[in-house]
C-alpha cells in the first residue's frame, strides 16, 4: 500500500528526515515511537502534503502512485488521512459544513452524487456515536472551545466520516485521560478492516494496549533505527531510548 524509499525532508536549512525506509501493507497497524524531535510528526506531515517541508531526496509510492507529486487534497481523496497532533480551530465554520464539504469532495472524486441533507445528518450521527461525541458538536465551530480530548475525538470522528485507507494518527493519545483514550482507541478499532492500515505515532505504550500494532518502529534523528514487533514498545517503555541509541 505504502512504500517509502530513502525519504529526506527539510524545513528551511534544517534536515529533519534523513533517509526513511518503510513499507506498509493493507490491514497492518504500525506504531512509530521515538524521542522528541526525532521527526515523527514531520514524517506524517510530509506524507499528508504539508508544504512547509521540502522533500530533498527519495520517493513515496502509495497504491503504486507517486504520493509526493499529489496535492494534499488529492492524497486525502485517495484515502490518506492525517489525525493532527494539534487540531486546528476554525471559528465561523461549523463541523457540519466542514464535513459536508469534505465528504462531498470525496464522493465527487468517486463519481458518486452528493449526499442529501438527511443522508448526511444520518451519517454524521452514526459516526459521532462511534467516538461518543454529542451531536451538538456538529453545529459548533471546528474545534473552537473544544477540550484537548474533544479535539482528538473530533479527529477520529472525521476519520470515521472519510473512511481512509491509510491513516496517520499523530499523538492522538497526548492530552487524553484514560477514559477518553479508551474511547478514541475503540473508535480506531471499530474502523479497522483487512483493507485499511494505520500508523500510530505515540510516546506511550499505553495507547498500544488498546490499539495493538503489528509492527513498531523507533525513529531517531530522522531515521528508523529499529523495527520489531509489539514487544519493542514494551521494551521502550521499560528502558527508554538510550540503549537503542547507544547500540547504534
Amino acid at each position: 500500500m505504502l512504500k517509502i524509499i530513502d525519504l529526506h525532508a527539510r524545513i528551511g536549512e534544517k534536515e529533519i528526515l534523513r533517509g526513511i525506509n518503510l513499507e506498509i501493507n493493507p490491514g497492518e497497524v504500525h506504531a512509530i515511537m521515538g524521542p522528541n524531535g526525532s521527526g515523527k510528526s514531520t514524517l506524517a506531515a510530509v506524507l499528508a502534503g504539508r508544504e512547509m517541508f521540502t522533500v530533498t531526496q527519495g520517493k513515496v509510492l502509495y497504491m503504486g502512485q507517486d504520493l509526493l507529486a499529489m496535492a494534499p487534497e488529492e492524497r486525502a481523496r485517495m484515502g490518506v488521512f492525517l489525525g493532527f497532533q494539534y487540531p486546528v480551530e476554525i471559528p465561523g465554520l461549523s463541523n457540519v459544513n466542514f464535513m459536508k464539504a469534505a465528504v462531498n469532495e470525496h464522493r465527487k472524486y468517486k463519481n458518486l452524487p452528493a449526499l442529501s441533507a438527511a443522508e448526511f445528518l444520518k451519517l454524521m450521527r452514526e459516526k459521532m456515536a462511534i467516538v461518543g461525541m454529542d451531536t451538538s458538536f456538529g453545529n459548533r465551530g471546528v474545534n473552537v472551545g473544544f477540550s484537548g480530548g474533544e479535539k482528538k475525538r473530533n479527529e477520529i470522528f472525521q476519520m470515521a466520516m472519510l473512511e481512509p485507507t491509510l491513516a496517520f494518527l499523530d499523538e492522538t493519545d497526548s492530552g487524553l485521560d484514560v477514559d477518553a483514550l479508551r474511547v478514541v482507541a475503540q473508535g480506531v478499532n471499530k474502523l479497522k478492516t483487512k483493507e485499511n492500515s494505520f500508523v500510530v505515532i505515540t510516546h506511550y505504550q499505553r495507547l498500544l494496549d488498546y490499539i495493538v500494532p503489528d509492527v513498531v518502529h523507533v525513529l531517531y534523528k530522522g531515521q528508523i533505527i529499529k523495527t520489531s514487533g509489539k514487544e519493542l514498545a514494551l521494551e521502550v517503555e521499560e528502558n527508554g531510548y538510550d540503549h537503542l541509541i547507544s547500540a547504534l
Binding site: R50, P72, E73, F81, F98, A101, A102
Partner: peptide
C-alpha cells in the same frame, strides 16, 4: 492545510 488534508 487542515481543510485540504480532508480532501477539500
Amino acid at each position: 492545510f487542515y481543510l485540504r488534508s480532508r480532501g477539500i
